[in-house]
């Protein structure tokens, strides 16, 4: 078991938005989170990544943690593609960046400063960062934004290779990656219901 989420409730701006979320992700599996804008996909991913505490419930991650990729790619404009990638590889204690460059078709751009990349190229570099983390669990928030069809195919191939090597991925995305094996979890049923006045245990409910 790679990731198991039990009865998780998350909040945004002090208001619970999702509750009783529960699922299990095994090695070799991918799970796609679906739901309308504002349902809390980003918040859920950030909670699982440990960036914000959940209101209730818990998420059990592999002991080494997960690799998280959010909306921003964490690139430094004045560093080259290779420098950016090498930095993250060293932070995660990994060595070689060549396979990651190859997988995301960035070999020709290795010496170019990140500020001279197109939006799609930046995104590909951001995703290449996942490959140098050495983490088995990936948490991806809208990974395909600004990618063209060919790049989406590259990304899908990278995911498939990751799953084949025993990894797992949890992602929030709207477009079809062509990953037939990916399960889909619609978050709409988990939308938090407003507690009846006076019933909530939280501070803000104390006087209703």
């Amino acid at each position: 078991m790679m990731l198991s989420v039990h009865d998780l409730a998350v909040s945004r701006g002090g208001i619970a938005i999702l509750e009783r979320v529960g699922f299990v992700l095994d090695p070799g599996e991918a799970l796609v989170l679906r739901g309308p804008n504002g349902i809390g996909k980003t918040t859920l991913l950030r909670s699982i990544a440990g960036l914000q505490p959940p209101v209730a419930g818990r998420a059990e991650l592999p002991p080494e943690g997960a690799a998280y990729a959010g909306h921003a790619d964490g690139l430094k404009a004045t560093l080259s593609v290779a420098e950016n990638l090498t930095f993250w590889a060293r932070i995660y204690g990994q060595g070689d960046i060549a396979p990651a460059l190859h997988a995301m078709d960035l070999e020709g751009l290795a010496e170019r400063p990140a500020q001279n990349l197109s939006a799609g190229q930046k995104r590909r570099l951001g995703l290449a960062r996942l490959l140098v983390t050495g983490r088995r669990l990936w948490l991806l928030d809208e990974p395909t934004v600004s990618l063209d069809t060919a790049s989406v195919a590259l990304f899908a191939a990278a995911i498939r290779a990751h799953l084949a090597s025993g990894g797992a991925a949890l992602m929030a995305t709207h477009i079809d990656l062509g990953l037939e094996e990916a399960r889909i979890l619609d978050l709409t049923p988990f939308r938090a219901t407003l507690p009846a006045p006076g019933q909530g245990g939280g501070f803000d409910e104390a006087f209703a």
Binding site: G14, I15, L194, F207
Partner: peptide, 17 residues
Amino acid sequence: EIRARRLRALEARERMA
């Protein structure tokens, strides 16, 4: 302060409902 906080919560609740 407690009342102001409560007011904030009520407004947020209204926006969500």
